[in-house]
C-alpha cells in the first residue's frame, strides 16, 4: 500500500490530487473542531461580507459560511465516495456477469446498462424523492444509480478482453470452478482501470450531488455544498460569497479526484502517458 502511494506520488498530477483529497478528508473528519463557530447557530448579522471575523462572510440567517463549508465537506465527500463505491458494487456485478458469460446474459445485462445510461438522472432522483422523501441514504442510492453504468462498461470491457486470454483458457482446461476463474483469475487483472474509474466517478458523484442540492433536492437536515448553493440562489446579486465559496469547494474536490484519477492512470497504465513517441516497441 505504501509502495502504491509512493508510485502515485511520482506521477505528474497524482501527488496534487492526493494532497487535496487528504486535506479535504482531514477537514471532513475534524470539521466540528476546526470550525470557528457552530455552523447551525446564528453568530452574526445576516449577509455579512467576508472579513477577518467571518472568513467567508455570513449567510442569510447569520450563520458563519466558513464553518458551514467546512462541515459541508463531510456530507459531500461521503456522498461522493460512498456512491462511487455503491456504483462499483452494482456496476461491478453487472459488468462481471455480462463480461464473463456470453450470449443471452451478456446481451440482456448490457441493454439494461444502456437503458440506465440514457435515463435522465434528475428525473430518476425526482421520482425517488417524490416516493420516499429526501434523505441522505436515498441520495447516495440515487447518485449511484446514475453512475453505475460507467463502472459496468469499464469492467465489462476488461472481462471481454481477459476472458479470451490464454491463462483463462488454461484455468478452464484445469477444470477450476467458474467462481474461481472470475474472482481469482480475471478480476485482479481487470481492476486497475476500474480503480481509475472509481476516482473519476467520485468526482462525478460530488457534481451530481451539488446539482441536486442546487435544485433543493438534497437532505434538508444535512449541510452539504450543494445545499448551501441552493440557499445562495436567492442572494446571487446581493451576496456573491454565499455561492462563490461553496462553489470553489466543489471545484476543489472535483479537481482533486480528477488529478488522483490521472495519477492512478499513470501508475496503472504507464505506457499511455509515456508513449509520446509513436514507435511501437
Amino acid at each position: 500500500m505504501t509502495a502504491f502511494l509512493r508510485r502515485i506520488a511520482r506521477t505528474r498530477h497524482g501527488p496534487i490530487g492526493l494532497a487535496i483529497l487528504l486535506v479535504l478528508l482531514v477537514v471532513a473528519i475534524c470539521a466540528r473542531w476546526i470550525a470557528p463557530y457552530d455552523p447551525k447557530a446564528q453568530v452574526g448579522t445576516s449577509l455579512l461580507p467576508p472579513s477577518s471575523a467571518h472568513l467567508m462572510g455570513t449567510d442569510n440567517i447569520g450563520r458563519d459560511l466558513f464553518s458551514l463549508v467546512l462541515v459541508g465537506t463531510r456530507a459531500s465527500l461521503a456522498i461522493g465516495i460512498s456512491s462511487a463505491f455503491a456504483a462499483l458494487l452494482i456496476g461491478g456485478t453487472v459488468g462481471v456477469l455480462a463480461g464473463y458469460f456470453r450470449g443471452v446474459a451478456e446481451a440482456a445485462l448490457m441493454r439494461l446498462t444502456e437503458l440506465f445510461q440514457i435515463l435522465p438522472v434528475i428525473v430518476v432522483v425526482l421520482f425517488a424523492i417524490a416516493l420516499f422523501g429526501a434523505n441522505f441514504w436515498l441520495l447516495i442510492g440515487a447518485v449511484a444509480l446514475a453512475i453505475w453504468p460507467l463502472e459496468a462498461r469499464v469492467i465489462y470491457g476488461q472481462f471481454v478482453q481477459l476472458r479470451e486470454r490464454e491463462f483463462v483458457a488454461a484455468a478452464i482446461v484445469a477444470d477450476l470452478p467458474t467462481s474461481h476463474i472470475i474472482l481469482r483469475e480475471i478480476l485482479p487483472n481487470a481492476l486497475p482501470p476500474v480503480i481509475v474509474q472509481v476516482a473519476l466517478d467520485a468526482s462525478l458523484a460530488i457534481l451530481i450531488e451539488s446539482g441536486l442540492g442546487f435544485l433543493g433536492l438534497s437532505d434538508a437536515n444535512t449541510v452539504s455544498w450543494g445545499q448551501l448553493l441552493f440557499t445562495a440562489q436567492d442572494f446571487l446579486d446581493s451576496a456573491w460569497w454565499m455561492s462563490v465559496f461553496p462553489g470553489a469547494a466543489i471545484c476543489l474536490a472535483v479537481v482533486g479526484f480528477n488529478m488522483l484519477a490521472d495519477g492512478l492512470n499513470e501508475v496503472v497504465n504507464p505506457r499511455a502517458v509515456r508513449g509520446a513517441v509513436g514507435l511501437p516497441a
Binding site: R165, E166, F167, V173, P177, H180, R184, E185, P188
Partner: peptide, 27 residues
C-alpha cells in the same frame, strides 16, 4: 491438458508460480 503458444499470456500475471500450481492441485 493444454500448453499454449505465448507462455507469458498463459500464466496469470498476478499469481506467483506456487499459487498457479497450488490452485490446480488443491482443487
Amino acid at each position: 491438458q493444454a500448453v499454449f503458444q505465448d507462455p507469458a499470456a498463459s500464466l496469470n500475471p498476478r499469481l506467483r508460480v506456487q499459487d498457479t500450481l497450488a490452485h490446480v492441485m488443491l482443487h
